[in-house]
């Protein structure tokens, strides 16, 4: 673990890997050090935003003393039904050397996990899936990616909660309620949660 200043009102904690990050995140989310306003999980860092009353040295000590939580999946596994008819499914098949049906089998065959969120409200970066699905993002991002689109980029998979620009390779779409402000919490996918994609249509 390495603790770096991120300006005078945040600290950045570097961790060896995603599991260590999720473990520290679980511990600090359950028992936040005094004055910490928010925790921002990322691939292998955790950023702590400090409120006006926080003492940076005390927060850093609390981080060093934290016993990593079990990084237990939050609220059990989330099931996301997908119709695998994405515009880039054929391209992903070519890039991976799999058939479209094998891409679908690979995407649904291994559980994923929400590593962190960002990009848009309710957008979760999912990791831990089948390593054969590691494809680069599109050279030219799309100006409009419809809400519910399910895509791949690098070692991540994800689903767009709202229409937005995006460069991920789209393999399908879901009608799972990824973001709903009338629900508490509004995001379906939260850091640590296990996610299972199930085929609701497309090549099998």
């Amino acid at each position: 673990m390495r603790i770096l200043p991120n300006g005078d009102a945040a600290i950045l904690v570097e961790l060896p890997d995603l599991d260590a990050m999720l473990g520290l995140y679980a511990a600090l989310a359950a028992d936040p050090p005094p004055g910490v306003a928010d925790l921002v999980p990322a691939a292998r860092t955790l950023t702590l935003l400090l409120g006006p009353g926080a003492r940076p040295a005390d927060v850093a000590r609390a981080v060093r003393d934290a016993r990593p939580g079990a990084a237990a999946p939050v609220g059990g596994a989330v099931t996301v039904p997908v119709v695998y008819d994405g515009a880039d499914l054929g391209e992903v098949a070519e890039l991976t050397g799999l058939s479209p049906a094998e891409v679908v089998a690979a995407h649904t065959g291994t559980p994923w996990r929400v590593a962190f969120t960002g990009f848009a409200p309710g957008f979760g970066y999912l990791t831990g899936g089948d390593p054969r699905l590691n494809v680069p993002r599109r050279e030219t991002p799309r100006v409009r990616v419809p809400a519910g689109s399910v895509g791949l980029a690098g070692r991540f998979s994800g689903a767009y909660p709202v229409e937005s620009p995006g460069g991920w390779r789209l393999i399908g779409r879901t009608d799972a309620p990824l973001w709903d402000l009338r629900r508490d919490p509004p995001a379906l996918l939260r850091p640590g949660a296990e996610v299972r994609f199930v085929r609701a249509g497309g090549p099998a």
Partner: peptide, 11 residues
């Protein structure tokens, strides 16, 4: 709105 980073929401 600090406190919602886990939802993908910034301040």
């Amino acid at each position: 709105r600090p406190g919602h980073a886990a939802l993908g929401v910034g301040v």
